[in-house]
């Protein structure tokens, strides 16, 4: 009890918790859940965009997209490492993902149907993600906070490259503009869902805030994202797919319709358009890589043996 009290005082003073520090089991579990989910999201997120690497329309676009997706893989690695400091291995995290025990952001369960989707993902999905990540730089767990710092620095070009694609499409031929609008129509709502359900006062979310793992509420972050994104859509000359969207002079915020929570729940429960495809891809690649990892392990063991004999 004394320990818990000191722990809270430490957190309230905006100090960072480090891997070997004492922490409540629940704090550890909460962080493992959140960080591994975040890591899986980065990795699974490589797939929808990866779909278009081989169809990127210029060499420049291909290079940018490759570098962007490569960054996401790197983010996955930073986050897996951060979670590992809490005493879970990467193998265990991957096993949990494959068993459906660990989640990833449901936004990656939507398909990418045209090239403008690549723009929309960078602009909206990375835009929403970075809104959340900027706030998480101040999270109380040291390794997580440092991973966020590094990630946010790298994210700076992701949103811009997406917006650049949107701009080219929106200002291009009528067909291109149509693709841009279509992409916005399909990605707008899933992006808003990325912030999660409305703030509730469940024990988990209260603890998350109390322990400063989460630094802003879902609705707060969602509103922040909407307020900065709507003018960007206007600049593109595209229409946000929400008839109720309007500026509220009094509050200084945009008002929107409510999210289709039925769809949200369905996708989370695994019934989204691409859930199975994404998981199958990951499982297949992991299984196909097993012989390579085994070979590398055997080779390393052999090297060690030779070193000992010498």
């Amino acid at each position: 009890m004394e320990k818990l009290h000191d722990f809270q005082r430490f957190i309230d003073a905006e100090e960072k918790i480090e891997p070997k520090d004492w922490m409540p089991d629940e704090y550890r579990a909460h962080n493992i859940r959140q960080i591994s989910q975040h890591a899986h999201s980065e990795v699974i997120g490589m797939q929808p965009e990866g779909n278009w690497i081989t169809r990127a329309p210029t060499l420049r676009a291909k290079k940018i997209l490759l570098a962007k997706i490569q960054d996401e893989g790197g983010h996955g690695l930073y986050l897996y490492s951060a979670a590992e400091t809490l005493g879970i291995s990467r193998d265990e995290m991957i096993a949990q993902l494959h068993a459906g025990k660990a989640k990833y952001s449901s936004v990656f369960n939507y398909p990418t149907l045209n090239w403008a989707d690549i723009g929309a993902i960078g602009w909206l999905v990375d835009g929403a993600a970075v809104t959340n990540q900027l706030s998480l730089r101040r999270t109380s767990y040291g390794p997580y906070s440092r991973a966020m710092l590094r990630i946010c620095n790298e994210e700076s070009f992701h949103q811009r490259q997406g917006y650049e694609i949107m701009l080219k499409m929106a200002k291009g031929t009528p067909e291109q503009k149509e693709m841009a609008q279509d992409a916005l129509n399909r990605w707008w709502w899933p992006s808003l869902m990325m912030f999660g359900p409305h703030d509730n006062h469940s024990e988990r979310s209260t603890k998350g805030m109390l322990w400063k793992i989460k630094r802003a509420s879902n609705d707060e972050l969602r509103q922040r994202f909407i307020d900065k994104t709507v003018p960007q859509a206007e600049f593109l000359g595209l229409t946000i797919p929400d008839p109720k969207l309007r500026w509220n002079e009094a509050t200084g915020h945009y008002e929107t319709s409510d999210i289709n929570w039925e769809e949200f729940n369905q996708v989370i429960q695994g019934n989204g358009p691409c859930n199975k495809e994404r998981m199958d891809h990951h499982k297949q690649v992991h299984a196909e890589g097993a012989w390579v990892r085994e070979a590398a392990a055997a080779y390393a063991a052999r090297q060690k043996e030779q070193l000992q004999e010498a």
Binding site: D91, A147, R293
Partner: peptide
């Protein structure tokens, strides 16, 4: 799931030096 001999290999800590003469710093 992976079979029990499968793994991602051991963890290594990485240190980088920004420029010659600077201290090595933990990167991840």
């Amino acid at each position: 799931t992976s079979n029990h001999t499968d793994s991602q290999g051991p963890v290594w800590e990485v240190f980088t030096q920004k420029k010659s003469g600077a201290p090595y710093q933990h990167a991840g």
